[in-house]
Amino acid sequence: MRDLAAHLRRWQAAGTTYALATLTAVRGSAPRPIGATMAVDAAGSVVGSLSGGCVESAVYEHCLEVLETGEPLRKAFGYSDSDAFAVGLTCGGEVEVFIHRVTVAEFAVVEAVLDARTPAAWVCDLASGAVLAVRADDAVGAGFDLDGADLAVLRQARDMLDAGSTAVRVIGCADRERMVFVQSFAPPPRMIVFGATDFAGALCAVGRLLGYRVTLCDARRTFLDHARFPGAHEVVVDWPHRYLSTAEVDRRTVLCVLSHDPKFDIPVLAQALRLPVAYVGAMGSRRADRARRTELRAAGITEHELRRLHSPIGLELGGRTPEETALAIGAEIVALRRGGSARPLSRTGRPIHGREGHSWSGWCRRVFHG
């Protein structure tokens, strides 16, 4: 939808009602990804594309129908042997499209999603057509009881925004189930690993597996052979604190300091502990951790800031190898991200998939605002 921002804003500025068609599911081969959008205004003007031409004509007619009736519509399109070039997808796939009317009352919801600078989730109820824009600290919309029955929708949307995922979800609310389409407009969260070690190589692979965009940074060019760190999306030759001072980070970012060298560790940790990021961890023995904390206090880090430091880094799994250590670090990050107890499931009575709706944003509010 953000690729149509200029057109939608012009229509909204003119007070023009329009129909928005969104690709909500794809099975098999299809020209466009889930979340692709097409819009048609009351005058019949059309912008955007759902299939590169295969189903646009049929969707266009349905958009005009929705504009007239105001009733949302959910349609499936697939390959048809008898009429492959009319409505069916000639590539052999199947798609589902949801079409609903956007009126003046929903313009503020759409605008909350269009700002490319802000991560946001677009939520659309596939039965009623109610829409919601969800950001880290607020939500804009109508047709949802976010203080009561539909709180689970808000939590699910925030979790999906944290992960940068897009999908249809059936969510159990207080008195009913809602089927909603959630589209996340956010880049993947970042993991920045400092220190070109074997442990860092294993952690880069784990970070990529968990869905992070992984950056490895070290000041020593000799150790930064990209072939040695295939899990990293990028490697950076720079002093850690200098790189971090200009790096783009947000409340989902995790920072892992594995260099195990005070001349690298202390300057970068002194910066990291004052940034609004999700996780700061540092490798080292308990003795090294005590010395590190003493040096950080001398550098002006407060006790409140020090409580954010996960050091020694990772959960106590008893691992020894770089791979086992990386698994322990990844497990600690997941436990923090999802509100897990880090205890064996057999020893708890909690739901196996964790507390619904726990997210970095909620954790950050607790950490930074008490």
Rank of each mutant, 00 (worst) to 15 (best):
L8V: 00
R9I: 00
A14M: 14
G15F: 05
T17I: 12
A19S: 15
A21G: 11
V26D: 12
V26A: 14
M38E: 05
A39E: 03
D41P: 05
V46Q: 13
S49K: 13
E61P: 03
C63R: 12
E68R: 15
T69G: 04
K75G: 00
F85E: 01
G88I: 02
V95E: 09
F98W: 12
I99A: 08
A105T: 11
A105Q: 12
F107R: 09
E111H: 10
A112W: 02
A120G: 06
W122M: 10
D125R: 13
L126I: 03
L126A: 02
G129S: 03
A133H: 10
A142E: 15
G143W: 09
F144M: 03
L146R: 03
G148C: 03
R155L: 15
M160N: 13
L161M: 10
T166Q: 12
R169E: 02
R176K: 08
R176S: 08
S184M: 06
S184A: 13
P187G: 05
P187D: 09
M191K: 06
I192K: 08
V193Y: 10
G195H: 04
A196L: 11
G207V: 08
R208D: 15
R208S: 15
T215L: 11
A219R: 15
R221H: 03
R221D: 02
F223A: 12
F223D: 05
D225W: 07
H226I: 04
R228W: 08
P230E: 11
G231V: 00
E234W: 04
V235Q: 03
V235M: 06
V235E: 08
W239H: 09
Y243N: 03
D250S: 06
L258D: 09
H260Q: 09
P262C: 06
F264Y: 12
P267F: 06
L269N: 04
L273N: 01
R274T: 05
V277A: 06
V277T: 06
V280T: 11
A282Q: 06
A282R: 07
A282Y: 02
M283G: 01
G284T: 01
S285W: 08
R287I: 13
R292K: 10
R293W: 04
A298S: 15
A299K: 15
L309E: 12
L309T: 11
L315G: 02
G318M: 04
G318R: 05
G319P: 09
T321A: 07
E324N: 11
T325C: 13
R337V: 05
G340S: 00
P344T: 02
G349F: 15
H353K: 10
G357C: 06
S361H: 12
R366F: 04
V367I: 12
